[in-house]
Design a protein around this nucleic acid. Structure first.
Length: 290
DNA sequence: AACTACTCCTGGAGGC
DNA sequence: TGCCTCCAGGAGTAGT
């Protein structure tokens, strides 16, 4: 699922291939995906140049000419593919289903943007959860504000003290709190599991019960895991199956596979309605006595 | 305010 | 083979 690392990696790729291009035409197969503020329509993108790409949490923000902002959220199964005039892939990211090799557009392709160099940007989503929002650039700040996103876990905005204060108010499992975008933004199911594994914290531990030391461990594990994933490329886990031919992710999707640290079999259960993986030895359910 | 349950969606996997 | 059920899960919303 596209989480912060996937979206950031995609942003970096598209920054090279898409910025500077002008949209010459638009085909929208599934209008419900495309939200616009009053007075705008998706077609207002035509003729606009993409001047920059930024990211906030899992939102991709295309800064367009004539003061327009386009936000893209891939949710669970969205993907963006930028294909050159000759059919070669310039950039792609998100959820590769159907596989990258399936010719585009296919039946899950909901948006095609034609660009002035003959390339095309496709948005595909088998489950139709992805969303796009087009608005005047001056509305972008308010758009992000209403999502009430917590701090970015990578970068200068993330402070352990503030993180600890947020955790102290929550009496639900730490795993569920990590998925709450208002507490910390950009973490999804895979990297929540990976961060807790890296920090040796059981996903069902009540957030407010974590010690100062544990919070500090978690607060450094989260950015480390995310930065690793951005750098090394991403951990797409097909249908909860363990991936044996690669080391990462270390625990997510690896039920019944020996933990890379201690050899104990990784366990799977549901926490807050989400499939959750952990090592029962490295991540004890009860707080260790000091 | 905090928390839980439900909703949106389709396709792949596994059971019989 | 083919039908059925379950599961994948980000985020918004409604209800407690």
């Amino acid at each position: 699922m596209p989480e912060l690392p996937e979206v950031e990696a995609l942003r970096r790729d598209l920054e090279r291939t898409l910025v500077g291009r002008t949209v010459t035409d638009l085909e929208l197969g599934l209008p419900k995906l495309f939200k616009t503020t009053e007075g705008l329509t998706p077609e207002d993108l035509v003729g606009k140049r993409i001047e920059g790409l930024s990211r906030r949490a899992k939102f991709l923000h295309a800064h367009c000419s004539e003061s327009l902002s386009l936000f893209v959220h891939l949710r669970m199964t969205g993907q963006l593919v930028h294909v050159a005039n000759d059919g070669s892939h310039l950039a792609h990211g998100g959820h590769p289903v159907p596989g990258w090799s399936v010719p585009l557009p296919h039946k899950a392709t909901h948006l095609t943007a034609m660009l002035d160099d003959g390339s095309r940007l496709y948005l595909t989503d088998i489950r139709q959860f992805a969303r796009l929002w087009l608005m005047p650039a001056e509305a972008a700040t308010a758009f992000i504000a209403q999502a009430r996103l917590g701090p970015e876990p990578i970068g200068a905005d993330f402070h352990v003290k503030d993180f600890a204060a947020r955790l102290a108010r929550r009496s639900i499992p730490i795993k569920s709190v990590l998925l709450d975008q208002r507490v910390i933004s950009g973490v999804g199911n895979i990297y929540a599991d990976e961060s807790l594994w890296a920090a040796n914290i059981h996903p069902r531990r009540t957030a407010s019960s974590l010690s100062k030391t544990e919070i500090a461990r978690l607060a450094s594990a989260i950015p480390a895991v995310l930065e690793y994933a951005i750098r090394e490329g991403v951990a797409f886990v097909p249908q909860g199956k363990a991936i044996s031919d690669r080391a990462f992710p270390y625990c997510h999707g690896r039920a019944g596979v020996p933990c890379g640290r201690c050899g104990t079999l990784i366990q799977k259960d549901w926490v807050g309605g989400r499939g959750t993986y952990w090592c029962p030895k490295c991540q004890p359910e009860k707080k260790r006595r000091a």
